[in-house]
Design a protein around this nucleic acid. Structure first.
Lengths: 113, 113
DNA sequence: TCCGTTGTTCTAAAAATATCGAACAATGTG
DNA sequence: CACATTGTTCGATATTTTTAGAACAACGGA
């Protein structure tokens, strides 16, 4: 398998990291990875097709949020916690922390387009 | 001017907040507002057309990041720091904090599409 | 070597976002 | 009232992002 590109720590951009984390599927992936274990791509969300998941992993990797390394036929993912904490202190903790806040209404309820 | 809709604190969604903050213009707005003052829409980014800015303010408002109140012909914006800190502790601080990290390379340098 | 597993890439299509000019609304001032 | 100021809304276009099927590549095991 070809060597995967990972942007170095100094090149991480906050806007790209935030965008990567602003998708529900990707946020879910990151939260699972935040538990610490390296997890293969296949261990997430069996409902979505593989190509879709592959896309999300790529977005996470290219924004610098995760590190991917292939081992055999699998691809193990880890959170780049050190790099993220160094560049954006407190960000990961704030995002991974479980929050409650249930509300049935949509943000777009009124005043939407 | 019509009363503007602001989602209540309990309805804020992390993914929407992150998406709102993942745009460079909007991030810039938020950082200026983080200094504490209420600022009119016109005080930001004179280069972009008003309709574009209006759109960005709307995204920020509907995601719950800012509060807008009209006063005369102006529209004053403030950060909803209390609500954001309550729902997503540490998030705003992490995002507003100035970071250094200069790197000429694009994240998409290799392995892009 | 022949399969099964795992994941990527290609491609197309759909959906969501962003941009911005033009028209409009609300307010304040001369 | 006429007019300037400030900002919103509408409409059209362009760009980006998401989704997912199909073909493919790499690896491991029988």
């Amino acid at each position: 398998m070809r060597e995967l590109h990972h942007p170095p720590r100094e090149c991480l951009e906050l806007t790209q990291v935030l965008h990567a984390l602003s998708d529900p599927i990707r946020l879910c992936i990151v939260r699972q990875l935040a538990l610490g274990e390296a997890l293969a791509c296949g261990t997430f969300c069996e409902t979505a097709p593989k190509s879709t998941m592959s896309h999300h992993f790529k977005v996470l990797r290219l924004s610098g949020v995760i590190h991917q390394r292939s081992e055999g036929t699998s691809c193990f993912n880890t959170l780049r916690r050190g790099d993220l904490d160094a560049r954006f202190p407190g960000l990961l903790d704030a995002i991974v922390r479980e929050e409650v806040g249930a509300c049935g209404n949509s943000v777009w309820e009124e005043d939407s387009r």
